[in-house]
């Protein structure tokens, strides 16, 4: 098939530059590497950062999975898959196990990732200190000096206001005892999956023009206080109504007929795989 575009949309020079930034990011875990974010046929803020990383990495033999907040079928995920599929011809999948490259927004899959997989996360705000310090020049200096008081101050303020840490998502992490990093708006539930992950994790921010990374088997620690240890969302007692899973991240839904609330796996492909396995038995 003859394509109107370059393979993977970008010219080779652009892809090489993004790969170079990614390599640097891997070499300095958690450090935000600036890169020349390209114009994309989708609006910035819709995952262009992650998409550029994906396009720079994808090879003919890759199998791509795209998830948006746990769902493979969302319009956004489908559009990204279409764009990558059209410009590369690579196979796409919804099964986490089959994918070699996984681009995701706001979740890390429930199925543990492997060494031969790469996870690309889409990032809206890469700077974990942005809410305390608006100036990029200053936050750069703070990272250089490993001055992360501001990140702790944000957590402290939440505890003063709400009695506990209330980061719904994007709870800051310290990577390999050095850089503090925004893990992207994944729930706290997913933070521990980054710690010593077998798969390489790359994070791309299109609007802010930054790439950063957690290399495989790297120590990732969620920031906390001695007397307020980091905690994931409490899921005890919750069971997926469809597949019976426990200890996963759930969506809380309301049964329109009975008005009762119930829980369902947020990771739809994980849920589906479990139901299929059940049916096969």
């Amino acid at each position: 098939m003859k394509s109107l575009y370059n393979y993977a949309f970008f010219d080779e020079g652009s892809k090489r530059e993004i790969r170079r930034a990614s390599l640097k990011a891997i070499a300095i875990p958690g450090y935000q590497v600036p890169f020349a974010s390209r114009e994309m046929p989708i609006a910035r803020g819709w995952g262009t950062g992650g998409l550029q990383v994906t396009l720079s990495l994808i090879g003919k033999s890759d199998v791509l999975k795209v998830i948006d907040q746990g769902a493979d079928e969302s319009v956004n995920a489908v559009n990204i898959k279409k764009l990558v599929g059209k410009t590369t011809g690579v196979e796409t999948t919804e099964e986490t196990e089959r994918a070699t490259l996984i681009q995701s927004r706001h979740r890390i899959p429930e199925t543990p990732l492997r060494e031969d997989q790469v996870l690309v996360l889409q990032v809206p705000i890469p700077e974990p200190l942005r809410f305390v310090e608006p100036s990029e020049e200053t936050t750069k200096r703070l990272h250089a000096e490993a001055d992360y008081s501001g990140a702790y101050l944000l957590l402290f303020e939440q505890i003063m206001r709400y009695g506990r840490v209330s980061t719904g998502a994007d709870h800051p992490v310290e990577v390999r005892d050095r850089y503090v990093m925004a893990p992207s708006p994944i729930p706290r539930f997913d933070n521990p999956k980054m710690d010593h992950s077998s798969a390489l994790i790359l994070l791309g921010a299109g609007r802010e023009k930054k790439i950063y990374a957690v290399p495989p088997y790297t120590r990732v620690v969620s920031l906390d206080f001695e007397d307020h240890p980091f905690e994931i969302e409490d899921v005890t007692g919750r069971v997926c109504r469809q597949c019976g899973a426990v200890d996963v991240y759930f969506d809380e839904l309301v049964d329109e007929e009975t008005g009762e609330t119930f829980f369902q796996c947020n990771d739809t492909s994980y849920c589906l795989a479990r139901m299929n396995a059940e049916a096969d038995r």
Binding site: V132, D147, S149, Y152, L153, F156, E157, I159, M160, R161, F225, E226, D227, H228
Partner: peptide
């Protein structure tokens, strides 16, 4: 001061910067 942060957090900021990681003690 950080004008939009609580007064408690404003005081704690300097303690956090000095390495304190205990919320109860700082409060």
């Amino acid at each position: 001061l950080k004008m939009k942060f609580s007064s408690l957090a404003n005081i704690a900021e300097k303690m956090i910067a000095a390495g304190n990681r205990n919320v109860g003690a700082m409060e």
